[in-house]
Design a protein around this nucleic acid. Structure first.
Lengths: 232, 232
DNA sequence: TTGCAATTGTAAGAAAACCGTAAGAATTTT
DNA sequence: AAAATTCTTACGGTTTTCTTACAATTGCAA
């Protein structure tokens, strides 16, 4: 019952309100008001769950979430205002474990937190185990250690940039990445009018791994949101 | 639990931070701040595992790693800053057993250290056994003792310089060596605008061992990184 | 010592791989 | 139908590697 929960929102009042709700239930709470703080705060091993707003200034919730996921496989519950584009939020939040709209119902929030913690602590850090080793997805296998991608057993020759994109998508199957996010993570710089660049690289990768690049089975587009590696 | 771990990084603060993390888990720690010290320190048989930064001044982590590997077959975990070119690092670190990015997550670091030590002590020094003897790779066989290379059974006449390069690549199949690194290890002096020299020698070797030197099967180039001996 | 052949290094142009951009086509949504 | 989004292709510029020729050096033998 001594579990610590990280609450992230740019509005301090909301953070406070949530914190009070959680503390009344016996949880410890850490606060952060933007994505950068969140990434840092989550390194504290005491933190066992994260509640995060997706729509934030600076490093937004999605980017933060992805970065956090790289470091620790914590349960993440996404918050979002009801007014915000539900589709978009949902699309982006696929990496999250649950999803709560603001204004939230305290009872419901607690219930979901409890549920996630139970699931997580009973299951343990499953992904940590399978983090090593070959990733298999239909016709494709990817060896993250050697950065070698194979299609039907044959090695696919990828350029450095292509490799980085494949690596990103393969390590997060099913998760949707906006072109902007892909750019940030592959080029390590801020994205500015880069969508076309990413798109062309995606095209070239498809040419190498898809049977029919025009109707891709693996690197799929999610309209208005981004790209994802389809799981087979 | 009394195992000794060698930590190598040019930043003393990082060495310290890692050392504290490890010592809290009951490991003994030795420190080194550059590659030369690392090579020396690893001669101590108490050392059972090495944590090393790849990007270091003086003798960099890669060179040190290779030199260490020649002396002792220890598990090596490579450290690198996330900002550094991931492709390059990964390509160069293939000789390592594992790979951790800075800023590192202490939990994860410990887990990986434990995992490597477990694997190593249970498996024992397997590679030491097969280190001697004839190296066979597809059409090619290489006798490291007599320094004789054969292609389809016929001896390939190599010049002294060519022999040294072949020896290096054959002893580390699959591992990528930048031209710079090849120069350092074959000529035993610092590399400065040597890429062309190495390239020409590679060309001449290819002419002698490849069926089609323009599309080599054995000595392959890895774009933007270096050369490697492909395993068949 | 001298001369020859093998070896080695350098330079420079050619070729290849890679990357980003632009612009029009195609597709999906509204 | 209009707007937004994605696809597709082609091209130019850059980087990296390849290739070749030639000059310098070395080693060996006459």
């Amino acid at each position: 019952m001594n579990e610590c929960i990280l609450v992230v929102d740019d509005d301090p009042e909301i953070v406070n309100a949530i914190a009070i709700t959680l503390e009344r239930e016996g949880y410890r709470v850490r606060r952060a008001c933007d994505g950068l703080q969140a990434v840092e705060a989550c390194l504290d091993p005491a933190v066992k769950l994260i509640l995060i707003d997706v729509m934030m200034p600076k490093l937004d919730g999605l980017s933060a979430l992805l970065r956090i996921r790289e470091k620790r496989n914590l349960p993440v519950i996404v918050l979002s205002a009801k007014s915000e584009d539900t589709d978009k939020i949902l699309g982006l939040s696929m990496g999250a474990d649950d999803y709560v709209t603001k204004p939230y119902n305290p009872q419901e929030l607690i219930a979901r937190v409890r549920s996630q913690l139970r699931r997580y602590t009973s299951l343990g850090d499953v992904n940590a185990e399978r983090r090593q080793g070959l990733l298999v997805n239909g016709r494709l296998t990817y060896d993250p250690a050697g950065r070698v991608l194979r299609a039907d057993g044959d090695e696919v020759k990828l350029t450095p940039t292509e490799t980085k994109i494949v690596d990103l998508l393969f390590r997060h199957p099913g998760q949707i990445f906006p072109a902007e996010e892909i750019y940030r993570r592959v080029w390590n710089e801020d994205a500015y009018s880069c969508e076309n660049t990413v798109m062309v690289h995606i095209r070239r990768i498809r040419e190498k791994i898809e049977l029919n690049p025009k109707e891709p089975d693996y690197i799929k587009v999610v309209w208005g949101i981004g790209y994802k590696m389809e799981q087979h």
